[in-house]
Write a protein that binds this DNA or RNA. Sequence first.
DNA 1: TCTGGGGTCCTAGGACCC
DNA 2: TCTGGGGTCCTAGGACCC
Length: 432
Amino acid sequence: MIALVDCNNFYVSCQRVFEPRLNGQPVVVLSNNDGCLIARSDEAKALGFKMGEPYHLARPALQQHGVRVFSSNYALYGDMSRRVLRVLGDWVPEVDVYSIDEAFLNLDGTQFLRRGQSLSQYGSDIRAAVLQHVGIPTCVGVAPTKTLAKLANRLTNRRTGHNVVTLETDAQRQAALAATPIEQVWGIGRRYGKKLLEMGLVTAADLTAMPEGWVRRHLGGVVGVRLWQELHGQPCLDFDPAALEDEERPARRHSVAHTRSFGRPQRDPAVLGEAVASFVARAAEKLRRHGLSAQVLTVLLGTDRQAPQPHTFTAVATLPAATHDTGELTRAALERLRRLLRPGTAYHRAGVMLSGLEPMGQTQLGLFTQTPEQLQRSQQLMTRLDALNQRFGQSTVRYAAAGLQEQKWEGRHNFRSPAYTTDWQNLWQVCA
DNA sequence: TCTGGGGTCCTAGGACCC
DNA sequence: TCTGGGGTCCTAGGACCC
């Protein structure tokens, strides 16, 4: 059996841990750039605020209702997420981290269940432990597959205190499928939801009643078939406990990216170059934090996403050998950027993606491009760079290519809360 | 003036190579 | 006059997730 532990309204919960008077109050958290609403407390949802709503349109109503507004604070949320995972790791050996606020637990092997204890009681105990040690409320769904565990989790109800739902028997599974609108099944998005409704399928049970061949034809081929089998109780999605992110076990991720919308559109190649160099630095830091090197680098430039014909331009560089050296990656990125730039075009966002990842240690020397001495020097330099920036703040030490004009391209973050748990300057003050 | 960012998987056409 | 097939790389796009 698989349990899905979901920290609902996670970002709001994180803010509330450090400001308990926000409990019971409407709270929203904004995306990067203070662009749109990405997290809402139950009270804010009840007032009608929608996920993804543009902030500048919602602002009058937010003010009118006295809703507390926060810019997103990923340093805080990431740290709180690790605390939650640590507690979960105390309960089960296999934790598959799905996102910053959700994790699957492998409950197979009844040695994890005390004699005579029900799955439902076990779920409640885990929930209580996370709440006690981290202060974050969660909901737990338990079922034979990931997709069914998600479905079970959706059937929890915080208002009634029904925080754990288990699907252990076929009758329970059937009832849950019948109670789930088709467009709320994990893996059915806006497009397929609309299409299936038009075809007369209303609940998840309607979908499982269709033949496999029909699903293959109408639901994206192999992807749809996997979803259908998962709903039937046959696991098709890997359970990947190595995804637990810590230094000893690097995540089995396939890419690392850093992309940003600009505060205002940019045309100047020099400014775009500095922005891309800054993004390379962020992405490379993330790479090193996970103990990885990358052999493939993609530079991306985007035009206005709201325009009738938005476009994303990409250019790929395959490096002679995998690397985590900011300098090497920056050179490759700027060279590709030059090829990508079209004079006069206004770009609204840019980014860097690193792929072809492998663990740092097993990096091969580039044939004719690197000596062992060069590799060692690069590694020492990166270690010191990260240590200095960790201690004195991001970008304290940077490559010249990243420039000093970030005010030209950086977005807004007007309501940022302190990084309470990760920055000595921002320790929680009990007395104001 | 103001609409996020970071991921996953799958598909497909064109260029190029053998 | 005949006019393959398999492979890789690049680019783009579609769908989904949180």
